[in-house]
Design a binder for these strands. Sequence first.
DNA 1: TCTTGAGCTAAAGTTAACTTGAGCAATTAC
DNA 2: GTAATTGCTCAAGTTAACTTTAGCTCAAGA
Lengths: 155, 155
Amino acid sequence: MRRAGDMLPIGKIARRTGLAVSAIRYYETEGLVHPIRSAAGQRQFRRSDIRRISFIKIAQELGFSLTDIRGEMEKLPEGRTPTTSDWEQISRRFRDELDQRIDQLQRTRDRLDGCIGCGCLSLKACSLYNPDDTVREKGAGPRLILDDGQKSEEV
Amino acid sequence: MRRAGDMLPIGKIARRTGLAVSAIRYYETEGLVHPIRSAAGQRQFRRSDIRRISFIKIAQELGFSLTDIRGEMEKLPEGRTPTTSDWEQISRRFRDELDQRIDQLQRTRDRLDGCIGCGCLSLKACSLYNPDDTVREKGAGPRLILDDGQKSEEV
DNA sequence: TCTTGAGCTAAAGTTAACTTGAGCAATTAC
DNA sequence: GTAATTGCTCAAGTTAACTTTAGCTCAAGA
């Protein structure tokens, strides 16, 4: 039994979440929220959609894309808004992601340290470029072929 | 005295750097390289442009935008390609930037840790949202106004 | 009832960093 | 000398996450 009074129009959702109305409409087209429609075709949101949108903004703040976020929400049974225990699962996954990004940046910084005095700035030699896994994509992508048929001097 | 033989056409630059020809042309429109033109209007690059483009790719790899990179290069006298000692200066600035990004991510992760068991997921209460300086932009931007004129229940 | 204010749709605009395509011109290879 | 390759310009397309605009409709208050 969902009384009309339980539902909120898009403007209130916008005010409660701090988002623009257009952003909320956009989230709907992206499948992140699923308002029902009034007889006249206006969107009607549940109160829990405020929490749902808060989740989206927080996850974005953590650096995740809307696609990532939709993915996480689709793992929940029947597309429900994350509960406290859902959040516990999800936030652990987010934490792991953050850890990986921090590690990656730290490795980059360390490589940069090793290069401060070097100044080789050569794509063939510099360890800053192609650190680990940029090349080897089956043969496509940037080549780093160095022979242009001329005496390879200074570069 | 710049002999024609010292100059390279765009295709060779592309092969030597691993970039697409279109990307190099794009860099020109963005003011990142400044090839001269042959009598027939074809681009002619200096050998040092290979190094210049290597610098661009490396800086991108470190996470800087083309705008940032152009900014760094414009600090150099008469728009020269970074030398070894230029690189020393620039790489220290880059290092500082990376440090700041790492710190930021670590703070975010730590805040997330404090929230794993919490699950409040409320934009008004959650320390994950609006961590430090997201609000207070002179009054514009997201409001986080919480009063919608209804008894504020569950949220 | 009449006037605002709020909502609706569909299409186009925005930024970054390029790519793709069309239609030609210049160079290089044989 | 001719074909294949490379290069040129200009315009439009791409992705993400939205915003803006235009042209209407609906709802709420005096």
